[in-house]
Design a binder for these strands. Structure first.
Length: 417
RNA sequence: GCGGAAUUGGUGAAGUGGUUAACACGCCGGAUUGUGGCUCCGGUAUGCAUGGGUUCGAUCCCCAUAUUUCGCCCCA
């Protein structure tokens, strides 16, 4: 038997219903928040992700799916969504008009990592990018939009963790201070942190191993090394969050795994037990230098990405998902009735009524059972005798009332119910 | 990449080194030969992830592989 590749999964039955619901909410919400849909390629030039996500990040160094096509082009399956959106923004010269540009995407991403609960090699992210605004209202919108969306989907205990990484200069100043502080304690840190000390000292802050050590408890705060402008900006973000009634918690150890972030960064965490270690359902932040870095005009941006699989997982705990009931189920036994069944089904469907009938040659009894399984609201029980008189037998599956309706009026009769 | 656990039908699962692998749900058929959902009766794994090994004999013991899962790393 050929099985699915490791780290991939099929979406069927109940999962499919959950996915449909999530996707509907996403499209609906994005419309009301005035975001335009964007779809970019699933593979891009390898170079793109090195320049955006960062050469030293794990995502790029250990987790990408890289391949050469038949003309030896170096390509990579996208590990995240922002890079492609920014590339498209520049390539299509979207900066020329209609700024800021508010975009949303919803598609599969690929990372070669160890699969687990809420983690897959092919996974889906929905995300939003606002390009061309440095206003704090933008930061707040990008945080509140997914927060409200998740609430609407049924999430109860959501928590926003937020931090301010400041400008590039702020971060350089802080890194310096951090290294200064850690230098005498270097031997007490875990192996990974020793490596991080040189490449990416900020990441030591959210190290799980050393988290509870006194060294990290007394570490200088990133918030103390920022310019007045940056500090005031962050204050304003928090103030606006209050206006929008978003619960948040400043977490000064929150840094993100992608290199392009600056100023506001955040995560939305769910406390649903089923998520276990995958409790972060969305995360994002500001990236004011990225567009310029990729060759576009200096454009401040803010965005987030959300893991659809994690939403689907958590939805199991929250509610029953049921298939929408069928409007009509048509039953028949002989050939004459069958022909009427297939034509009537077509007419009903074209009139906006969902309809179905048996195609496996089941007994009438089984057809009744099937109708109940589908929660059909109306049963159309065809029989030759009535058909010859131009009548069709319609039974209300709730009241059990049966009516004979003229063949020519059947569509109107059902539609007007 | 490192360490632990798991893997029995469509599903939830019981089980034992030795004839036909419980039970339940579901599904199919019948009682009711064209009006069901209740009830009753019957059917439903040549098979216990895959490949080796130990054994007279393995689903059960051992090894390997795969997949899933938990923790680390990382991250959505």
């Amino acid at each position: 038997m050929i099985t699915k590749p490791k780290g991939t999964y099929d979406v069927i039955d109940r999962e499919a219903l959950k996915l449909k619901k999530i996707n509907r909410y996403i499209d609906y919400y994005c419309e009301f928040y005035n975001y335009d849909l964007i779809r970019t390629p699933i593979f891009e030039a390898r170079e793109l992700f090195h320049r955006t996500v960062g050469d030293d990040t794990d995502i790029v160094t250990k987790e990408t799916y890289d391949f050469k096509d038949r003309s030896d082009r170096e390509l990579t399956l996208r590990p995240e969504g922002t890079a492609g959106v920014v590339r498209s923004f520049i390539e299509n010269k979207m900066y020329g008009s209609n700024m800021p540009r508010k975009l949303y995407y919803n598609g599969t991403m690929y990372r070669y990592e160890r699969p687990g609960n809420g983690r897959n090699r092919e996974f889906t992210q929905f995300g939003v990018e606002i390009l061309g605004s440095n206003d704090v209202a933008t930061d707040v919108e990008v945080i509140s939009m997914p927060y409200r969306l998740f609430e609407e989907l049924g999430f109860k205990n959501l928590n926003v963790k937020i931090n301010n990484l400041g400008s590039k200069e702020d971060r350089e100043a802080y890194k310096k201070a951090l290294k200064e502080y850690l230098k005498p304690h270097l031997d007490d840190l875990c192996e990974d942190c020793k490596k991080r000390y040189e490449n990416n000292p900020l990441r030591i802050l959210d190290c799980k191993v050393d988290k509870d050590s006194d060294i990290l408890k007394n570490v200088p705060s990133i918030l103390d090394y920022q310019s007045e402008e940056s500090t005031n900006r962050f204050k304003k973000v928090l103030e606006y969050l209050n206006y929008l009634d978003i619960d948040y918690e400043v977490d000064k150890t929150l840094v993100r795994g992608l290199d392009y972030y600056d100023y506001t960064v955040f995560e939305i965490v769910s406390s649903e037990n089923i998520l276990g270690g995958a409790s972060t359902i969305a995360a994002g932040g500001r990236y004011n230098d990225l567009v310029e870095k990729l060759g576009g005009p200096s454009t401040p941006c803010m965005g987030f990405a959300c893991g659809i699989e994690r939403l689907m997982l958590a939805m199991d705990e929250m509610e029953t998902i049921e298939k929408r009931p069928l409007d009509c189920y048509i039953m028949y036994v002989n050939e004459e009735e069958k022909i009427k069944a297939i034509t009537l089904a077509q007419d009903l469907r074209m009139s906006g009524v969902s309809a179905d009938y048996d195609t496996t040659g089941r007994s009438l009894k089984s057809q009744f059972k099937e109708a109940d399984r589908l929660h059909a609201e109306l049963l159309i029980i065809l029989n030759s005798e009535d058909l010859n008189k131009g009548l069709i037998n319609v039974k209300d599956n709730l009241t059990k009332e049966e009516t004979k309706v003229d063949e020519n009026e059947i569509i109107d009769y059902i539609v007007s119910r």
